[in-house]
Each structure stands twice: as C-alpha cells, then as structure tokens.
C-alpha cells in the first residue's frame, strides 16, 4: 500500500512538473495579460511534434528541446500580431493560430518519412534528454529530477521577469490597457511578447511530455487548456496568492496537486468515464472551501 502511495506521488510529480510549465504559460496569458489565448493546444502539440521530429531524424535532444522554446515563442507572437496589428478579437486570434498549427504539426511529424505528413511520431529507441541523465538507476526518478529542475528554473525566470520594468509594464497592460498607455507603455508590444513567452513555456511542456512518452501525435494537445486552467485554479485555491512569489509557486504546484487527485481516483479503481464527474466535484469543493471555512468561523464566534 505504501508502494501505491509512493507511485502516485511519483506520477504526480513527474506529470505535474512537466504540466506545471503549461500552467505557468497559461497563467501568463489568462491571469497576467487577461488574454483568453486558445493557442495553447496548438503550441503544446507543436513543442511535442517539433522535438519528436528532430529526435526522430537524429538531432541532439537537448538542442531540440531548447529550440522548441523558440518555436513556441513564434507561435505566441503570431497570435499577438493577429490581435494587435490586424485587430482580430483575442479568442479568434488564438483559434486561428491553433488551427494553422494543426497542419504545421502534421508536416513536422512527416519529416524524414515517406509521406509529406504524418499524424504521429514514435521515438522507439531514440535517445531523449532523459536518457542522458543517469543520476538514478530508475528512469522515472531521472525524469522527475529533470522536470523539477526545469520547472524551478522556469518559475525563477518568471518571478524575475515580472519584477523587471518590462515585466511590470506587462502586468499593467493586462490589468488596465488605457492606464498602461498613459504611462508610456507600448501595450501592443507587451501583448505580443507576453503571448510569445506564454506559448514558449507551453511548447517546452509539450517537448518534455513527448520525450517522457517517447511519442508525439496530433492529438496530444487535446484537453491541455482545461488541464492548465484547472491546475491554476486548484493551485491558487489551495496554496493562495498573497504575494506574487506565492502566486507563481501556487500555479506551478497546482499541476502536481491536480495529478495527485487524478492518480488517487485512478487507483481507487474509478471507471474512466466517471473521472470527469470527479474533476467537477473536486473543483466545486476546492472553490467553495473558503466559504465553508468562513461559515465555520462564524459559528465558532457565535458560540464564544
């Protein structure tokens, strides 16, 4: 039984850290920039398809992973440009990029194969970044270590970035565009770069996931937007957002918590079609917890 507990914890850490990058990325667009960015599902798959295609064709996995950050950044910039320069509404801008990425991902996954496209890449025995880290004997522990390092670096980077002049201006843009412009901030530029950074993180998340699963396919991004948002909400509710540092850590850890809950559910033998109902119930519990707490404290005061 203790074994099961350990396994669930391992899985939650493994997946949670990788998806934590996704949560951070979505946090930047949804919470900081107040921009409902639907590009996420496309850029997650982009990161995975890109890295898998490169590794499949013999590239160095570390280089491929680093480059996946760049392609994600570009995807975000495109959405930003569509919205700021072509005045396309934000939701639609994200959808347009995401749709275009579907085709691009198919083309990427076909590189080095006989067709012009493919819908999946299987990495089989190609080496991923996890194969180069030999700290532990068991591979899954190595994956956790690497993912932990990456999410920690990403979180530190975000904390630093949003404390700089540039970062503050970006946050101001998300809160109040008119006021930001009145303070001399180029809001268009902020949105473009902000979306770029957001999707760069999401793409990196996809790249790590593809290497963990040793495969990438055109549907790997499905549902990631919901996972990201749910992670943010769960993280904020449980760990709070009293300071910016607190907030950002809560978001990064939210994914771990999210996968902990799912892991428990699966191990309890819950049928998979019931899982969705479980998430809904959990989110309700998590969001109403503060009200229940207040009610509880009121009762206590009445008694005393």
């Amino acid at each position: 039984m203790l074994d099961t507990l350990r396994f669930i914890l391992n899985d939650a850490l493994n997946l949670g850290f990788a998806y934590g990058l996704l949560a951070l990325g979505i946090f930047i667009s949804y919470r900081l920039l107040d921009f409902a960015d639907l590009t996420a599902e496309g850029s997650f798959t982009l990161g995975g398809a890109f890295v898998a295609a490169l590794i499949f064709n013999g590239a160095n996995p570390f280089l491929a992973t680093l480059l996946s950050i760049v392609v994600g950044f570009v995807a975000g910039i495109i959405t930003g440009l569509l919205h700021t320069k072509l005045k396309i509404p934000s939701l639609l801008s994200g959808i347009i990029t995401m749709t275009a990425l579907f085709s691009i991902n198919m083309i990427l996954m076909g590189i080095g194969k006989t067709g012009k496209f493919d819908s999946a890449v299987y990495l089989g025995n190609s080496k991923t970044i996890y194969d180069y880290i030999g700290i532990f004997k068991q591979k899954y522990l190595n994956i956790i270590v690497v993912n932990f390092l990456v999410i920690t670096l990403a979180t530190m980077f975000c904390y630093w970035l949003f404390g700089t002049e540039f970062g503050m201006s970006l946050r101001a843009t998300g809160m109040n565009q008119k006021m930001a412009r009145a303070q001399g901030i180029n809001t268009s530029f902020m949105i473009i770069i902000g979306l770029g950074i957001s999707n760069a993180l999401i793409s990196l998340s996809g790249a790590l996931t593809a290497q963990t699963n040793q495969s990438a396919d055109c549907n790997m991004g499905v549902g990631t937007l919901v996972i990201g948002l749910a992670s943010i909400i769960v993280g904020e509710a449980i760990f709070g957002k009293r300071s910016f540092l607190n907030w950002i850590i809560s978001v990064a850890l939210g994914s771990v918590l999210y996968y902990l809950i799912i892991g428990i559910a699966i191990n309890l033998g819950l049928d998979s079609y019931l899982l969705k109902l479980l998430y809904a119930i959990l989110i309700i519990i998590v969001l109403t917890a503060p009200f229940i707490k207040k009610g509880f404290m009121k009762l206590k005061r009445k008694e005393s």
């Binding site: 404390g163 700089t164 002049e165 201006s169 946050r171 109040n176 006021m179 303070q183 001399g184 901030i185």
Partner: peptide
C-alpha cells in the same frame, strides 16, 4: 482607470516614474 488595481502603490508609482523611459529588463 488611472491605476493598476492588482499592483501595489509602489509598483504603480514605479510605472509612472518611467513614463518617459524605455522599459528595460532592469529590476523594477
């Protein structure tokens, strides 16, 4: 309209201070 609600007074004033300057990557 004139301030960023989720930022502190200090952060808002820092923004105003740099109204005429480029926003660099220096600590805010």
């Amino acid at each position: 309209m004139g301030t960023a609600p989720n930022m502190s007074i200090e952060e808002n004033m820092e923004l105003a201070y740099r109204r005429d300057q480029k926003k660099t990557l220096r600590w805010g």
